[in-house]
Simulated assay, not measured.
Amino acid sequence: MLTPRVLVVNDDPATLLALQTLLADAAERDGYEIVCAHSGEDALREVLQREFAVILLDVKMPGIDGFETAEAIHSHPRSAAVPIIFTTVYSGDDFNRLKAYQSGAADYLLMPVIPQVLQTKVSVFVEMAKNRLELQAKTQALEVLNRDLRVQQMRELKRINAALEAEIVERRRAEQRAQDLATRDPLTRLPNRRSLIERLEHAIAHASRHNECLALLFLDLDKFKAINDTLGHEAGDELLIQVATRIASCLREEDMVARLGGDEFVVLLENLPDATHAAVVAHKIVHAVAAIERIGEHAISTSTSIGISLFPGDGADMQTLMKHADLAMYRAKKQQRGSIRFFRRAMNPAVVPGQD
């Protein structure tokens, strides 16, 4: 693209027009083109056809919402680095704000937005796009220079290479930040589901080759929803952080604890001598979590129910072990909260997860 483009995505025609109007003068002044889309699907089609300096993306949309649209945009190599600014009329929604930054958002704006703020944020990315375009144009120009301009060409090439190296360094830093977001739970800093799956698949392969036993502990906090609803999300988040710390304190250095999301945690124990060790660790975790008595100024009472599946007896693959540990956990929660249960073949597979 010769002129930077800004994509504005919003399913509400009035809001879309308002955003377009707010940017119109700045677009003429700064030299960029505004492209509008009425849905996530329309936005994806635009991104596949053209390049954009920045995307203003509505959070709440019918069909695919803003978060799903952002994930699809960043999953495509061509648009993986396009900055996205989420816009929403829902104020005070910290969960969506966190989810936006987890989705790779460059910013998160509440509507109605101050015109100068919106214009300034967009202009920053437009200027970056212009610099990138200028760099690309100069690089292309160097390719057509003749021999008589070789000395001048080499000087210019050195300058451009220095700029490219600086850009590469910054890109690597951004990729490292993105990698951290992709593999770590942003609240507890524990490995997330993706990291757990990769580690578990590797552990199963290793245990299979060496005829070893491993255990998967599926944990779910009891009464978490009530605590979250009564004391608020900040207290709920603090409880999850304390639980993560206490679980980790019960494990060996080579063990792994991951947060799947919500109030669900999974512990992976490798190279076990027998099933008794898994039970010992599970009981330590139960006691450690039950010892949490306060969140800030609030007195609380909570516990954790744990289901355990063993490799290879309860499953030879990751999906089966996860399913069986999950089933055992819900059986423990149903029979006695704050207890542990090993998976048994006789367990009713129709057990349906209930509420906290």
Rank of each mutant, 00 (worst) to 15 (best):
R97A: 09
D94S: 13
I114C: 05
K99N: 10
A105R: 03
R97V: 11
Y108P: 02
V82F: 04
Y108R: 00
F86H: 06
F86E: 03
I85P: 12
T87M: 13
S91D: 15
T88P: 09
S103Y: 03
F95W: 07
D107E: 14
L98R: 12
V113G: 04
D107V: 00
Y90M: 12
G92D: 06
Y108M: 07
P83D: 10
T88C: 09
A106H: 06
T87C: 15
F95Y: 13
G104C: 06
P115I: 12
I84G: 05
R97N: 07
Q102T: 11
P115H: 05
Y101E: 00
A105P: 07
V117A: 04
P83K: 11
G92V: 07
I85S: 10
V113I: 15
F86Q: 05
L109Q: 06
V117F: 05
L110P: 01
Q119E: 03
K99D: 09
P115A: 09
T88W: 11
V117P: 02
V89H: 06
Q102W: 01
P115S: 09
G92W: 10
K99A: 13
R97W: 07
L98W: 04
F95K: 13
Q102D: 14
P83W: 01
Y101G: 00
I84T: 03
F95H: 14
P115E: 00
Y101Q: 02
